[in-house]
Design a protein around this nucleic acid. Structure first.
Lengths: 237, 237
DNA sequence: GCGATAACTTAGGGTCGTTAAGTTAGCCCG
DNA sequence: CGGGCTAACTTAACGACCCTAAGTTATCGC
């Protein structure tokens, strides 16, 4: 009952690292933590003991490199955020239309979340790093690049010019909403996740663009505007 | 260090309940669990021991009424979903315009999340009740009522007629996105939470309405449509 | 009043995060 | 080349946790 090898692999006790290279073990610990997280599915299920055993070391050794479990999880997150940026950047390689870039970045974001749900939960659904500075999120390359795309959309006249930060945060909220629900409630009747993600992202982008266009009407006024538009011929209507 | 009374209050050992009324204790346990959840801030921090002590009972007694900790948390959630429905229904009392009803329900949803963050986390950010049937969410009065409002919007011509479920899920994703981030990352520069929530919800609703209007153009086509609209006089532009 | 049994408690097994204190191995320096 | 310094790690253990098995006590029907 103890030590299911497929999930555990006690990993023969490793040789002591040479004198200067405590950092070496640090990297191995992070990798092992990611592995455990993948296999066990949640940060709670990932025990320090399991990580240690996976590296071939006793639990207290972990604490020579990380203050506590949360610090280890934070270190895992730093790794992951750089990977998120990678996939988001790859998704827009060679695409020039700013709105299309925005769309592809959003889709890549949702895809990343779905491809490693435990990581996504860890990154977004905890209050961890709470007192930690805002830059832990806004300063990541991923968010910075996304902010840049929002700026491009403003320059292209798709969104009203101004500070891109609020729009970026609000678009992120939409992307996070669908990513989060797809991850947390996969059994709901979403249909094709890729399609529903596209719908949500498209609606958010169109919504902000049109909101900038028509100002801030109340609901009856918007209904009237919409009715008038419906009466006109539409390009793909 | 043990038992901070303001958070614990060991609660004098209660008298044994009369014969038929085990259900009585059950209710008290749920109430105590909600209390602990409020005070301690997360489901992990809420220990069975604390709940038991709060009721004035020993930990094993909890297991006479709930199979395990998760079952207790589920019971807390059932309570909360009815409360969510209450506030969402109150928010639309006396409002007849369907889009305005949609808006108010969304705002009430976000407000509910922000007013009890621990509950919201518990309800949405866990995989709990996963194998449990879909109705645990879609069958709640809150979601059913929301679905009704989406239907009303279709009847009013705001959204294209059809199955309201996909639209409802996608609008929920937007509301959840901003609610979730406001709860999990309150330190980000959101500005007034009520305002940012309104922006996100408005963009989602407008976005779906306009998407239904203009069909499914690619990004350059949408840009062209937008430019043409911008060249026309707008009601509140 | 007296069993039957619902409503609890005591005791404990196993896991977890974390710490204190000990031990071993690599490297520097004479 | 060998002695010691200290980085790198281990052993042992504390306290908290979830949960279970087995015992005890109070209430109620008769």
């Amino acid at each position: 009952m103890t030590s299911n090898p497929s999930v555990h692999r006690p990993a023969a006790r490793r040789r002591r690292a040479p004198r200067g290279s405590g950092e070496l073990l640090r990297g191995e610990i992070i990798a092992a933590a990611r592995d455990c997280l993948n296999r066990l599915g949640s940060a709670d299920a990932m025990s320090i003991r399991a990580v240690a055993s996976h590296v071939g070391v006793t639990p207290p050794s972990i604490y020579l490199h990380f203050a506590d479990k949360e610090a280890l999880l934070d270190a895992v997150l730093v790794d992951l955020f750089t990977e998120l940026d990678d996939v988001m950047q790859q998704a827009v390689a060679g695409i020039s239309h700013p709105l299309e870039r925005l769309r592809q970045q959003g889709l890549a974001y949702v895809r990343f979340a779905r491809s490693s749900p435990e990581y996504y939960r860890l990154a977004t659904m905890n209050v961890r790093t709470e007192a930690g500075n805002v830059d832990a999120i806004l300063g990541t390359a991923a968010f910075t690049h996304f902010l840049g795309t929002v700026s491009e959309c403003m320059d292209a006249g798709i969104f009203a010019s101004g500070d891109p930060l609020p729009i970026a945060l609000e678009l992120w909220a939409a992307a996070h909403g669908i990513a989060s629900l797809l991850v947390a409630k996969p059994y709901l009747p979403w249909g094709d996740p890729e399609v529903v993600a596209e719908h949500v992202l498209r609606a958010a982008a169109i919504g902000h663009a049109v909101a900038d266009l028509i100002g801030d009407p109340d609901c009856p006024q918007f209904s009237a505007w919409l009715a008038a538009e419906q009466a006109r011929p539409q390009p793909a209507g």
